[in-house]
């Protein structure tokens, strides 16, 4: 699934490590999500959406 996590993270000048800490996941998991190698669970997707002040649909796009 495509997503805008990398772009949103960069607009906030956050590293993957910092975003991972804020969301309670590892740096590698943030990287895997950004690259589309891992689709987060619904709770994590909602946590990300709330963190960036968006809806889940605005961040994650079904191909």
């Amino acid at each position: 699934m495509r997503n805008d996590v990398r772009a949103l993270r960069r607009t906030r000048a956050l590293s993957q490590q910092e975003l991972g800490q804020a969301l309670g996941v590892s740096r590698q998991t943030v990287n895997a999500i950004e690259q589309g190698r891992y689709d987060p669970s619904l709770p994590l997707a909602i946590r990300m959406a709330r963190y960036f002040g968006r809806t889940v649909e605005e961040i994650f796009h079904v191909d």
């Binding site: 309670g24 996941v25 590892s26 590698q28 998991t29 895997a32 891992y38 987060p40 669970s41 994590l44």
Partner: peptide, 16 residues
């Protein structure tokens, strides 16, 4: 290495 971290028992998030 993330693989070694997993072997060490660092399974702190859903993907791991």
């Amino acid at each position: 290495s993330e693989a070694v971290a997993l072997l060490r028992g660092e399974v702190e998030d859903e993907r791991r």
